[in-house]
Design a protein around this nucleic acid. Structure first.
Lengths: 156, 156
DNA sequence: TCTCAATTGAAAAAAGTTATTTTTTATCCT
DNA sequence: AGGATAAAAAATAACTTTTTTCAATTGAGA
């Protein structure tokens, strides 16, 4: 386990690594050091919503010869496997976060218009609205994407 | 008024054109034929959520010598003036729609995962949720972006 | 260890968007 | 109307993010 000045770096446990290896194998994919390193960076930065470029910068510390294309390919793969969720905060890059297997709906995001901070909101409360829309528009809802723009406690 | 095989093309009325001219003048901008043509295309295609490229293709019928950069500059300007709203449906391009001055909140969108159709939903119903979030997270909400992904009546 | 398909890094290409430069034009002022 | 002037347009280049190509490498299983 590596320790940096700002705190403890969380890594995948042996069991998590085995689970990942298994998931990949089932689909005919391989567990390479690059893929493990990329996923580690994402786990280490939970809640930060890293872009491919940012993941690349971090992962190069562990894996200096890695290419940016590999990062793009890997996050795409992890998204397809349901391990990552791709999001867009209109800042010109795509950002990824870990899918929390405990939640059944995608959580909401609060985006500060001044400092750009992104906060996650567990609260859901959309069931009533979704039910109403499903019926009124004859549309079966699979997922939602809810963002609130405004000013955070530090900026308002 | 031009008639095409698929129906009637709606244009800005004299009054609307005058209003636009006025709005532009107040900010030191000019009403050029290109800007008028671009806005006409957007009005003609209400509900279609055109991308800059799509606007460009349409506007070239009226204005064959126009450049794509002019379309980009114009939609940016119209967005800054509060006439257009920029949106992102994760299909790789930004899309624009007219701001409806009658509604006080941005409406929601239903996006079909199969055919890609985008439907607008007037229903709001987010006040309760927004109140709760404002208090719980000490975050003042200015706007929201709510998308529901699923299957439309034709595809489900 | 051997084989083979999957994966990688490097570079080029694509795709979307923005900036630069020169020329044109809409508006304002007599 | 005509002329000055600042804004806008066209054309092109540049830029940014993401994807593709391809030869070389490597992981996983026999």
């Amino acid at each position: 386990m590596k320790i940096f000045h700002w705190g403890v770096i969380i890594m995948m446990t042996k069991e998590e690594t085995e689970k990942l290896k298994q998931d990949l194998k089932e689909r005919g994919y391989k567990l390479t050091p690059q893929r493990r390193a990329i996923l580690n960076v994402i786990i280490d930065n939970e809640g930060k919503h890293l872009s491919p470029e940012e993941i690349y910068d971090q992962v190069k510390m562990e894996c200096p010869e890695i290419g940016l294309a590999t990062v793009y390919r890997t996050v795409q793969l992890l998204e397809k496997m349901g391990i990552l969720y791709k999001m867009n905060f209109d800042d010109g890059v795509s950002r990824y976060e870990l899918v929390h297997s405990t939640e059944d709906h995608q959580h909401h995001h609060l985006i500060c218009l001044k400092c750009g901070a992104i906060e996650e909101v567990e609260d859901d409360l959309l069931e009533v609205l979704e039910d109403r829309i499903s019926k009124k528009y004859d549309f079966s809802i699979e997922n939602h994407d809810v963002k609130f723009y405004g000013y955070c406690k530090r900026c308002k």
